[in-house]
């Protein structure tokens, strides 16, 4: 019998080695897999490369992982935020490497890795400093930049409901990078509010099919409001 359910965040992340490339879902705090990041902090792996849209908020979650000097490189689109103090200080001190990627290119490079695409031409960024040194081509009169996939050893994402096969549903804009990151990592670990019985998820409503998911950790309802906890 297949069961992707892990007993705890700690056991789900126990085999992450030093030097791993880790995708972390979320856009700001929406969809950020907070419990998994806390467990990664506890677990101790270092010299990590992190792929995430932002570079942490405040002093918890991804910001805490950066603050503990566990990340040598971050690939992201929008590190600078009003509360990205930890990243800002590390970057200014030259203690973290940054690969800045336009948000749509970040998403498509992740998607491409999951879909087996070798590289692709995109119009985004053409003629800008972020495309310097990259191959370009004019196709049907439009200018494009060649971009390569981003794959990862692990993806840590957050979803709303899962079953033991790893089928996932999400809630509102917390979906963001979850489905594409799930497809682009060798091992995908998901924290969900609730794991439900097989058959409870409407197959038509599953957003990430379980084939993209390896481990699921139930972290409990995040909402006091009953109507939010009960949405399909």
């Amino acid at each position: 019998m297949i069961s992707k359910t892990s007993a705890s965040a700690a056991s789900a992340l126990a085999d992450i080695p030093d030097g791993a490339t880790i995708m972390i879902g979320g856009f700001g705090l929406a969809g950020q897999p907070v419990q998994l990041i806390d467990a990664l902090l506890e677990q101790g792996a270092a010299n990590l490369t992190v792929v995430s849209n932002n570079a942490g908020n405040g002093h918890s979650g991804l910001a805490a992982l950066l603050g503990a000097k566990r990340v040598q490189k971050i690939i992201c689109s929008f590190p600078r935020q009003t509360d990205s103090h930890i990243f800002d200080a590390l970057y200014r001190a030259g203690e973290i490497e940054l690969e800045l990627v336009p948000q749509g290119n970040l998403a498509e490079r992740i998607r491409a890795a999951g879909a087996g695409i070798g590289a692709f031409f995109t119009p985004t960024g053409f003629g800008t400093s972020l495309a310097e040194g990259k191959e370009t081509r004019t196709i049907n009169g439009r200018d494009y930049v060649l971009e390569h996939p981003i794959a990862a050893d692990f993806a840590l994402i957050s979803a709303y409901r899962a079953d033991r096969l790893g089928n996932l549903t999400y809630r509102k804009t917390s979906r963001n990078f979850g489905p594409i990151m799930a497809s682009a990592a060798a091992t995908t670990v998901v924290q969900v509010d609730r794991i439900v019985e097989l058959g409870e998820l409407d197959p038509e409503a599953v957003i990430t099919p379980g084939i993209f998911v390896n481990r699921v950790v139930e972290t409990g309802d995040r909402f006091e409001r009953e109507e939010w906890a009960d949405v399909g």
Binding site: N53, G104, A107
Partner: peptide, 29 residues
């Protein structure tokens, strides 16, 4: 205010009838 429902500026927003949600790959596509 719903922490799962924010805009690109990370401000809490609301949904209108007929709204839809999608992942980043689709959004930028």
């Amino acid at each position: 205010i719903d922490p799962d429902l924010i805009n690109a500026g990370k401000i809490a927003v609301t949904e209108l009838p007929g709204a839809s949600y999608f992942h980043h790959g689709d959004s930028f596509g």
